[in-house]
Design a protein around this nucleic acid. Structure first.
Lengths: 177, 177
DNA sequence: CACTTTACAGGACACCATGTCTCGTTTTAG
DNA sequence: CTAAAACGAGACATGGTGTCCTGTAAAGTG
């Protein structure tokens, strides 16, 4: 291996600049040009390590969201409250933007599923299994309906995703067992 | 009122061309240029009556989806089967594209809610009220979870939206009452 | 029948983000 | 010292957007 090594400083500057711009202008209005300018790097440096702005934000989000998964799952209410709290602020705007962009970029959709959505689904399933082991309900369907309600509200914006929703869902799921 | 009247022929040609291109190239790859070319109209004619391609497709979809609402709601299973069947083919691709684009266009989101999503929500709520009148469950929450699961699957593409899903949801909702 | 008004098809135009390329410079390993 | 790879900076072609202009067509009004 020869040659100049990748600049860790530029990498961090780019990821932070991307998040900062998403917070200020909203995900859809962020451009790769602006990210490079904000981070003080050349545009080629961006294109060398990432392909699209979605790539950059996906990596930035993984760093933000990934540690949010505790090893031993708490009860359903706590899990939902914590997950829903993540959708508040920049993280929510970014992940909604990523999901929207994934509709025109199948590769991004694939990475979104494996890196962000899939792990959360698995975690919720674990919580449900532990919380109601005797239930004969279709767990995958329950997962779809819980996270479905969350995504539906995030995208359609007809209601908020907050602790109230977490509580209502928890009550409804209890009545299933 | 003077002057040449709006050409109904051009209007229909544009809406049909838009749907045809969505079917052939997918919603995200359709451009206003291509719609005008496919319809054989000038681009100014497009911009005179619509602002964006989302506007065109929203009008085209309204014509397709709106008559799908029967006056007297059937049972939950039938309603879900019919609704889910609509998401198959072009209509599904278009409405998913519209929802994705609405994330970067609040005005489009507003029209999407009032013209497509809202009426469907109201219809499902009616079906649920008639189907399980004695239930004390939070009906709006149940609506969110049912259509949430549908949208979640349409957008995240981890499972299909079909008659099987309709059946599973119907069974689960029955166990709530 | 003129005359006015508006829509029409077609095309030219500036604008902006994208993605590729080039330049000269900097930092590593051998 | 030399080769290799990354760096900041910026030029460039491409393609979609939205506006503007041209000449023509279709309606009403006097």
């Amino acid at each position: 291996m020869v040659g100049r090594p990748r600049s860790e400083e530029s990498r961090r500057a780019i990821l932070q600049a991307a998040l900062r711009l998403c917070e200020r202008d909203g995900y859809p209005n962020v451009t790769l040009k602006a990210i490079a300018a904000e981070a003080g790097t050349g545009r080629q440096t961006l294109y060398r390590w990432w392909n699209t702005k979605a790539d950059v934000l996906l990596e930035a989000m993984t760093a933000v969201v990934a540690p949010g998964l505790p090893p031993s799952p708490p009860d359903l209410g706590s899990f939902l409250r914590e997950t829903f709290a993540l959708t508040d602020g920049v993280a929510g705007r970014v992940i909604v933007g990523l999901m929207a962009e994934a509709q025109s970029d199948p590769d991004l959709g694939e990475r979104l599923r494996t890196r962000l959505i899939g792990p959360r689904r698995a975690a919720l399933r674990e919580v449900l299994e532990r919380d109601s082991p005797s239930s004969h309900a279709n767990l995958d369907l329950v997962v779809d309906m819980i996270f479905g309600a969350m995504w539906y509200r995030l995208l359609n914006r007809h209601a908020s995703v907050d602790a109230v929703l977490a509580e209502e869902i928890t009550e409804l799921v209890r009545s299933l067992t």
